[in-house]
């Protein structure tokens, strides 16, 4: 399955933390990812960007994880956004109307 060593790449620039999960947001990965996210969130003071450019699929738990991350950012009063979502992910986010909570940017094609 997905690389167990580092399921997520974390990058910090100033107060912004960029989280780049190295695979899908599904039942098998969410817990590990959640732990990494909790840690990373501690150092975020400005914004959290969830970069889903390496993610192909998301399941119910994945959505719950994203919403949890958003909720925690909201509590910390920092901006949360998603970048690099593929068409399928974007479609799910849009149909669930998550775009009204945070900004979601499509993966650049071509």
């Amino acid at each position: 399955m997905a690389a167990a060593k580092s399921p997520m790449k974390t990058q910090k620039t100033d107060g912004t933390v960029r989280l780049n999960p190295k695979g899908d947001l599904v039942a098998s990965t969410v817990e590990t990812l959640r732990d990494g996210m909790v840690k990373a969130l501690e150092s975020a003071t400005e914004a959290v960007v969830l970069d889903l450019s390496s993610t192909k699929q998301i399941d119910s738990l994945g959505i719950t994880l994203v919403l949890g991350l958003f909720k925690s950012c909201q509590k910390k009063e920092i901006t949360f956004s998603i970048e690099g979502a593929n068409t399928d992910l974007l479609r799910v986010f849009k149909l669930f109307n998550l775009t009204k909570f945070f900004s979601i940017t499509e993966a650049t094609r071509e």
């Binding site: 909790v38 969130l41 738990l61 959505i63 949890g68």
Partner: peptide, 22 residues
């Protein structure tokens, strides 16, 4: 589907979200 919403108040934070059935 004309509209959808998730009650944002009901969402738990990162630590506890996975136990939640939203």
């Amino acid at each position: 589907c004309l509209d959808a919403f998730i009650d944002v108040e009901a969402i738990a934070d990162l630590e506890h979200c996975l136990e939640q059935d939203l």
